[in-house]
Deep mutational scan, measured.
Amino acid sequence: DRHTIHIGDITIHLEGFSEEELKLAEELIKRGIHLEEVKRILEELYR
Rank of each mutant, 00 (worst) to 15 (best):
I33R: 04
E26P: 01
L42W: 01
E26V: 14
L35A: 10
I29L: 12
E19P: 13
I12N: 04
I12S: 05
I33P: 02
E27M: 09
L35W: 14
I12Y: 02
H34A: 12
L28Y: 03
R31T: 11
E27I: 11
K23V: 12
I7K: 04
T4Q: 13
E21T: 11
R47N: 15
I29F: 09
G16R: 11
H6N: 11
E21S: 13
T4H: 15
E15Q: 11
L42Y: 00
I33K: 06
R2D: 13
E26N: 09
D9G: 12
L35E: 04
E26Y: 12
L28V: 02
F17E: 03
L28F: 06
E37K: 05
Y46A: 15
K23I: 08
K30R: 14
T4V: 12
L22V: 13
L24T: 11
H6D: 08
L35S: 06
R47E: 15
Y46M: 15
I5F: 00
H34E: 11
I33Q: 03
G8H: 08
K39R: 11
R31A: 12
H6P: 07
E37R: 03
F17W: 08
E36H: 06
I29S: 03
V38L: 11
E15T: 13
T11F: 09
E19I: 11
I12H: 06
G8V: 08
G16T: 10
L35Q: 04
V38W: 03
S18F: 08
E15I: 14
H3N: 09
I7H: 09
I41C: 03
L45H: 14
E43G: 00
L28E: 01
S18V: 07
E15F: 07
E20G: 12
I41V: 05
K39S: 04
E43R: 01
T11Y: 05
H13N: 08
R40I: 05
R47C: 13
L35F: 10
E44A: 01
T11P: 04
V38P: 00
G8A: 06
E21K: 07
L24M: 13
G16F: 10
L28P: 00
I7L: 11
H6M: 06
H6S: 10
E19S: 13
K30S: 09
E44M: 01
E21C: 01
T11N: 03
E26S: 10
R2P: 15
E37D: 12
G8W: 02
E36L: 06
K39N: 04
L22W: 12
L24A: 04
E44I: 03
A25S: 03
L35N: 04
D1F: 00
K30D: 05
D9Q: 10
D9I: 06
L35K: 04
K30L: 09
E15N: 14
E43S: 01
K39T: 05
I12K: 08
K30M: 07
E27D: 10
I12G: 04
K39G: 02
R40E: 03
E44G: 00
I12D: 04
I5Y: 00
E37N: 04
K39Y: 09
L28R: 01
T4I: 10
I41E: 02
L45A: 12
I10D: 06
I5V: 07
R2S: 13
I33C: 08
T11I: 07
K30H: 08
D1W: 00
L22Y: 08
V38Q: 00
